[in-house]
Each structure stands twice: as structure tokens, then as C-alpha cells.
Design a binder for these strands. Structure first.
Length: 799
RNA sequence: GGGCAAGUGGUGGAAUGGCAUACACGAAGGACUUAAAAUCCUUUGGCCGUAAGGUCGUGAGGGUUCAACUCCCUCCUUGCCCACCA
């Protein structure tokens, strides 16, 4: 017989919703627990990745609830973004209609999984009641000078006529139309996240319960590097060319200088030179290249000599100034000193263009003399040579000595360089939060007054995909009055990147309907911080970095009293099929809905948790689903054969299981928790469960298979939800065994097992082990040299 | 090129210094059945052996230890992230 999952799941979903048992209210007496999973982009249907993410969170949430915590477990939709607009262009519809449709569909599917969300707190970022607070926060940043406008080189898709975020550029091409992305200089809005770089780096040390992997990725992204800015002078004019390096110990090996093609200095120094035309042609060629072409392979480095020379401040050597594509304007000063003997890129370039090399660091134990011997740059540590007064020093020592020398002589300055750039947030797109500023000919850039928020998106808009942002065509939107002088003015038509929306949504969940600000300070003080955050590793840098930044900014505004939003972070692994990531483009997806209608949500949840630990990849297995279904039916049948009283052995197994399951769920080891429950069920089949044993089994399984267990729980005559039942405690006294099996090894190999009283003394245990027949025969008459005893576990006799 | 993670039966995985392969899938056999399905029970790492038992075995090689899947070193493979970052 198969248990009637369809009817059961539908019924309990309704009862839970009507009973509002998952709706959260602050309660100063109980300990709060805020559990959050990354909210989805409403693309239409939920996929297995969502199912996995949200199932993991749901089990943790229900478990905490049963342990007596006051749990906040909200859900919402990250609803702005390009796909809705693309769909609108394709279907000749409206992004809002498309998005609302998707949200309704996804909400229905999430409910069909039986997730324990407080749906009264649902937020959608595309609603004015939400995005007005994006605008509010933006204006606060604008006031503090953290939001600013500047000309910048950005990714631009010529077909879609819009800027693209870096993540929207796949292998140098537009993710939508596959057209090659070009670089274009445009006036854009930026947020000065760099102002917070030190705090963003330092506070990473506080995040003890984040995966090391994510912390490393954030550190790399911030990219703090200590070095020296060295002032080289142009030979003729004496004009200073600053160069950033982390390897000032190699400065005596510098044989030429390279400027990035975009470097403003280049045009200046070549003016009037015979090579001017050739160089300009080169610069033009490089600037036309896509970033993909420019960085492709990384081997072919092109460049030209400018005809000018620079002077090395440490030895007054004169060296040629080159322009080359391998130097980037965005990093450092856009200029480098090239040390071909000790930098692989410089090495390749020098070989190509027959530039000189000089060894200045000698590796220990090797006698590198001439640069001709080199087959590649030596980038390791060693002793200074050919380095004037610094000869003979260890290069680490020389690093600090040379830096000091430069500070003293004014030829350089100790500097810290960061990789982190300011955050480009403007998009020439309709479906996003309008940037709340107005351009006035007299007053300049003026923020929209707070009382006029939200600046709402106009609804009557045509979506053609051509001619830039559709907002430009809406006269009623563009034409505005200057808030300061009331003169006719122009409204900003760029919208915000959607990462803004998700940078603070976890705060909105604390008071989703609050009207006086982005969130109620009191509510946030109660619920925040997020105790457990769960989501994909793909957000390791962007979303998680932006959210950390927003939190710090809002703290500085006095709205929060903590620095970090997420206490613990779990990054769940991907769902694979046949060893490949499940994805639409591969066409190897499995539709959760189909599984639900065939086996029920509880079976799907059970399989997904049992098949692998949360952080690792999960291989989809149709047979595994059947196994999970079979197990639930096996539990279902127990209720028909309950005994008056279970025997002592089963009671003992139960307490052991309670201990194991409680510890495992606490540590998110759901697969082994389920394995322990399965063993317990096998033990029940070997004996017989009574009411009490069965009740506890149901409670332990309830977070994993909620509808199923709720039904069984009520079948036992309980009136309240199983999720109001207390999580079972185990009796430590019952876990103590009087007899234990001790393994006896001879020279580290298991040779015998002996049953002994658990409180046996070491000497007695040793005596018993040495007296064992098998042990005696394996010792072959030799006397024991050593005897290691691990109480209650093992004896190892060394002969 | 750099960083991180991983590598265990036919498969997903368990064990984080102390009995390698828990639990599940798959496979084989049995019970029930006129039969099948379902269910319940048993067996299931390789090799040698009728068996008792022996022996090998956690990507490869070395090391530490009474004892290593686990710790250290070198290498190989795979996956992910970053990347002309000076």
C-alpha cells in the first residue's frame, strides 16, 4: 500500500497557512532565530537548485522551531532585472505583468514544497513600496558623497544598446544576443564602496562561521597589496611618471618602462615625434579590441617604443619608455617598471622585442650569472646581486630597505594598492529602480526630495529593444521641475543595478510594511543579525560583499548597531545530472513539479537531503527518489503494528538515535541524520515500536518530511501541530552500556575482539587481551614490547 | 599562471588519528503469490580457499606514529573561483 501523499500534502499546507503557525512575532522572552535563504529571481518555475537551497533552510528552520526558538523564516522575490524586459520585448507585453505572473507561479510551487515561510512578510523588490527605499538609501549615499557620477569605460552591447554588468558578459559576449561586447566611455553613476574597503577587509576576520573559500574570494576581490610608488622621470622634460610595484627589491633589474595605451602621458610625450602616427595607430587598435581579445591567451604581448626615455632613480640609468597592451590603465598607476629577469610577462615581452635583461635576485643554491641562461623569469626569493649598496641582502630584507631609502630620498612612497573598484550601478534599462535625481541647468544634479519618493516607473511604455532605455521616450517622466529653483529640468532615466535591491532585503523582512523608513529600527534590533544564511557560492563576492557594505553604511547612519549582517553562511552545492550541472541550456533539467506529483514533496525533500551533504554537489538519481519514497512507506506501515511496550534494546537504540540526529541536524549533516533514522526504523522492524517510540520517530523525521509526519502525528490522536511538539531529549543513562567490544590488535592489525565489562581497568583488559587464544597464536611466542590501551575501544600489542 | 576544494566498493556516500566501506541505490538469492507487482528476510570490496581462514585494499609515491582515508611532503587527476593585478 502506498501512503496518500497528494491528499495529505495539500491538506496540511492549507491547515498550516490558516493556522499561521509559521508567522513570526517578536517575543522578548524567547530566543530569536533568523534563518534566511537567498531569495530567487522570479524566472517562472522553480528548479532543483531552488528546491535544494530551500529544503536545507526549511529543515533547519523547523528544527529550531521545535527546539523552542522564535524563528523568522521569510521569503520574497528579487523581481527587477533584464530577463523581464527581454521577455516583454519578445512577447510584446509589459515587464511588470510578466514578473507578477512568474512570482505567482513560483509562490505556488514553493508552497507545494511545504516550506515553512511567513508569507505575510513576502516582499517583491519591483513594487514601489520596496524600491522607494532603494531611492531613499541612494539619496543618503548621495548626500554623503558616496554616490557620484563620472565618465567611465563600461561594457556596452551594440545590439541591445545598453551597458551590461560584468556578470552579464559571458566570454566577451552579450549573454542575450551573443554579440561581442565593446568598451565605451559613458557618464555613469557609481557608489564609493572603496571608502569602506579597509572595514570590509578587516571584518572578514570576524566571520568565523563562513566558509574559508568565500572569505578567500572576498579577500582576493578586495585585493589589498603593499608596495611602493616609484617616481621615474622623463629624461628631457623631467616630468614624473609614477609606477606601482610590489617588487621594489628588483628595481636594479628594471630595463624599460611600460605605459598602458590609455595612459594620458603617452599622447603628451609623443607629440611631434616621428613615431607619433605609428603609436597612435597602435593605441587605436588596442582600444578597439574587446577585453576578451586583449586578454586572450595572455601570451601575445604587443607594444611599441615611444622614442622617449626615463631615468631610474636608484642608479640614474636611462631606459626606454614603451607602450604595450599588457599594462592595464585600471590597476596601479597604469605604468610599470619592467623587470624581465624576474617577471614572466616582462620576460616574454623583452624576448619578443629584444630588450635587455639583468638578474638581480639569485636563488639559493644556484649560480645564475647571465640573463641569457634564463628560460623564464625567476620570481622566487633569493639574494640581491647587481643591486649596488643592497648587494648580498636577502630580497625580503631588501624590500623594506629599498622602500625606506625611497621614502627618505623622495624618489618613491610606500603605498597600498587595492583591486576593488567603485561600484557602477547605472543601467540604461527600464525594469529597475529609477535613480532619484534631476538635472537642472542652473542647480546641477539635484536629489529628489525625500517627501517626493518614490519616483515611480511610468507604466505606459513601449518596449522595442532599440533606441536605448525606454524611459528616454516617456516625456512625462523625463520632463521635471527642479526641486530647488522650480525651473524646467530633466529627470535621470538610468535605473539602478538590481544588486542594490538585494543588498538590504534581509532588513526589510524584519518589518516589511514599515512606512517611515526602509525598516523599523526596533524590529531590526530584535531580529537581526541573520543567524543562518544559505545560498549558492556564485554570490560569494558580489551580493555578499554589497550586503556587507550596505550594512556598514546603514550602521554609520545610526540605523543599525552591528557591522556584519550574516552570522553563519552555508553555500550549498549544485545539482548535477549525469555528472553535469543541471541547466536549461544543457537541457538536462528535472522538473520538481513532476517529481512532486509522482512521489510527493516529502519524498523529494528526503531524497535531496539524503543523497549528499549540503555543501557538496548532488547527483540526481531517479532510483534514489524511489528509495526515499520506499522508506516513507516503510515508516507509514509501522503504525499498523504498534506493540504495548517496546523492549529495552529498542529504547536504547531510540536514545542513541535522538542523540545522533539532534547533533547531526544542528551541524547541517542531514544525510547522516537520515541514515541514523533509517537504522532506527530497521531496528523497529526487527522488534516492535510502541506509541512512545513511534512518536519520537515521527518528531525526528518531521523537519525532513513535514506533511507526512504531521499526518502520522495527528493519527496518534495529537491535536496540536507536530511542530509545536518539543524536540525529544535523550537519556544519557540509557546510553551507557555495561558490556563493550574491544578490538585487539597485534602490530596494528586486528586479530581478535573481546567482550568486556565497560568499566574494566586497563591492567585487567591487558591481561585478557594477552590471554586471548588468537592473540597468543599471532604473537608466535614473542613477548610484548609495548601495549597501547584505548579504554573501551582498543588494545594494540606490539611485539 | 595563482587560489581553493575534492579523489574511498558497480553507484550516491559514511568514518577527521583507533574495527575502512555506516545508510541508501543497484545486483543476487529466499519467503509470500496460480503468477506478477508490492512487501519482508538474507548475501553483496578484490584476490586465494569447499570451508575455516588468509591476504590486498581509501588517486600515486614518500614521511610522522604503537596505529593514517584522516596529519606532513612531493606528484597526478578532476571541479570551482580569480587572473597580463605589476
Amino acid at each position: 500500500m502506498i501512503y496518500p501523499f497528494k491528499e495529505i500534502e495539500r491538506r496540511w499546507q492549507e491547515i498550516w497557512e490558516e493556522g499561521k503557525i509559521f508567522n513570526a512575532k517578536p517575543d522578548p522572552v524567547r530566543k530569536k532565530y533568523y534563518l534566511l535563504e537567498m531569495f530567487p529571481y522570479p524566472s517562472g518555475r522553480i528548479h532543483m537548485g531552488h528546491v535544494r537551497n530551500y529544503t536545507i533552510g526549511d529543515v533547519a528552520s523547523r528544527f529550531k522551531m521545535m527546539q523552542g526558538f522564535n524563528v523568522l523564516h521569510p521569503m520574497g522575490f528579487d523581481a527587477f532585472g533584464q530577463p523581464a524586459e527581454n521577455a516583454a520585448i519578445k512577447n510584446k507585453s509589459h515587464p511588470a505583468a510578466w514578473t507578477i505572473n512568474c512570482i505567482n507561479q513560483m509562490r505556488k510551487e514553493l508552497k507545494a514544497m511545504g516550506f515553512s515561510y511567513d508569507w505575510e512578510r513576502e516582499v517583491s523588490t519591483c513594487l514601489p513600496e520596496y524600491y522607494r527605499w532603494n531611492q531613499w538609501i541612494f539619496l543618503k549615499m548621495f548626500e554623503k558623497g558616496l554616490a557620484y557620477k563620472k565618465a567611465a569605460v563600461v561594457n556596452w552591447c551594440p545590439d541591445c544598446e545598453t551597458t551590461l554588468a560584468n556578470e552579464e558578459v559571458i566570454e566577451g559576449k552579450c549573454w542575450r544576443c551573443k554579440k561581442e561586447v565593446i568598451q565605451k566611455e559613458l557618464e555613469q553613476w557609481f557608489i564609493k564602496i572603496t571608502e569602506y574597503k579597509e572595514r570590509l577587509l578587516e571584518d572578514l576576520d570576524k566571520l568565523k562561521d563562513w566558509p574559508e573559500r568565500v572569505l578567500t574570494m572576498q579577500r582576493n576581490w578586495l585585493g589589498k597589496s603593499q608596495g611602493v610608488e616609484i617616481y621615474f622621470k622623463e629624461k628631457e622634460t623631467g616630468e614624473v611618471i609614477p609606477v606601482f610595484t610590489t617588487r621594489q627589491d628588483t628595481i636594479f633589474g628594471a630595463t624599460y618602462i611600460v605605459l598602458a595605451p590609455e595612459h594620458p602621458f603617452v599622447r603628451k610625450i609623443i607629440k611631434g615625434l616621428p613615431r607619433e602616427k605609428e603609436i597612435l595607430k597602435f593605441i587605436d587598435k588596442v582600444s578597439k579590441e574587446t577585453s576578451l581579445e586583449r586578454t586572450a591567451a595572455g601570451l601575445k604581448k604587443e607594444g611599441v617604443f615611444t622614442g622617449r626615455y626615463a631615468v631610474n632613480p636608484v642608479n640614474n640609468e636611462v631606459m626606454p619608455i614603451w607602450v604595450a597592451d599588457y599594462v592595464l590603465m585600471e590597476y596601479g598607476t597604469g605604468a610599470i617598471m619592467a623587470v624581465p629577469a624576474h617577471d614572466q610577462r616582462d620576460f616574454l615581452f623583452a624576448k619578443e622585442h629584444k630588450l635587455p635583461m639583468r638578474i638581480v635576485i639569485r636563488p639559493a643554491g644556484q649560480n645564475l650569472k647571465s640573463a641569457e641562461e634564463l628560460t623564464g623569469a625567476y620570481e622566487g626569493a633569493g639574494t640581491q646581486v647587481n643591486s649596488g649598496e643592497f648587494d648580498g641582502l636577502d630580497n625580503q630584507e631588501a624590500k623594506s630597505r629599498i622602500a625606506e631609502w625611497m621614502e627618505k630620498t623622495g624618489t618613491g612612497k610606500i603605498t597600498v594598492n587595492w583591486r576593488l573598484r567603485d561600484w557602477l550601478i547605472s543601467r540604461q534599462r527600464y525594469w529597475g529602480t529609477p535613480i532619484p535625481v534631476i538635472y537642472c541647468d542652473k542647480c546641477g544634479i539635484v536629489g529628489v526630495p525625500y517627501e517626493n519618493l518614490p519616483v515611480e516607473l511610468p507604466e505606459d511604455v513601449r518596449f522595442t529593444g532599440k533606441g536605448g532605455s525606454p524611459l528616454n521616450q516617456v516625456k512625462e517622466f523625463v520632463n521635471a521641475k527642479c526641486p530647488k529653483c522650480n525651473a524646467a529640468a530633466r529627470r535621470e532615466t538610468d535605473t539602478m543595478a538590481t544588486f542594490i535591491d538585494s543588498s538590504w532585503y534581509f532588513l526589510r523582512f524584519c518589518s516589511p510594511k514599515f512606512r517611515e523608513g526602509p525598516f523599523d529600527k526596533k524590529e531590526a534590533a530584535y531580529w537581526m543579525t541573520v543567524d543562518q544564511y544559505i545560498g549558492g557560492i556564485e554570490h560569494a563576492v558580489l551580493h555578499l560583499l554589497y550586503s556587507r557594505f550596505f550594512t556598514k553604511f546603514l550602521k554609520d547612519l545610526g540605523l543599525l548597531d552591528f557591522n556584519e549582517p550574516f552570522q553563519r553562511l552555508l553555500t550549498q552545492g549544485m545539482v548535477l545530472k549525469d555528472g553535469e550541472v543541471m541547466s536549461k541550456s544543457r537541457g538536462n533539467t528535472v522538473d520538481p513539479d513532476a517529481i512532486i506529483s509522482r512521489y510527493g514533496a516529502d519524498t523529494l525533500r528526503l531524497f535531496i537531503l539524503f543523497a549528499a551533504p549540503p555543501e557538496t554537489e548532488l547527483e540526481w538519481d531517479e532510483k534514489g527518489i524511489e528509495g526515499a519514497f520506499r522508506f516513507l512507506n516503510r515508516v507509514w506501515r509501522i503504525r499498523e503494528n504498534l506493540a504495548e511496550k517496546a523492549d529495552m534494546d529498542l529504547a536504547r537504540t531510540m536514545h542513541k538515535t535522538i542523540k545522533k540526529v539532534t547533533e547531526d541536524i544542528r551541524e547541517f549533516k542531514f544525510n547522516t541524520a537520515i541514515a541514523a533514522i533509517m537504522e532506527f526504523v530497521n531496528a523497529i522492524y526487527q522488534s516492535a515500536a510502541d506509541r512512545e517510540v513511534f512518536s519520537r520517530l515521527i518528531i525526528m523525521l518531521a523537519p525532513v518530511a513535514p506533511h507526512f509526519c504531521e499526518e502520522l502525528w495527528h493519527g496518534l490522536g495529537n491535536k496540536e501541530s507536530v511542530f509545536k511538539a518539543a524536540w525529544p531529549e535523550y537519556d544519557p543513562a540509557l546510553l551507557v552500556e555495561d558490556q563493550v567490544t574491544v578490538v585487539v590488535q597485534v602490530n596494528g592489525k586486528v586479530r581478535a575482539k573481546i567482550e568486556v565489562p565497560s568499566d574494566i581497568r586497563d591492567e585487567k583488559l591487558r591481561e585478557l587481551a594477552l590471554g586471548d587464544e588468537k592473540v597468543i597464536s599471532w604473537m608466535q611466542g614473542k613477548s610484548p614490547k609495548n601495549c597501547i590501551i584505548v579504554p573501551r575501544k582498543l588494545v594494540n600489542i606490539v611485539v
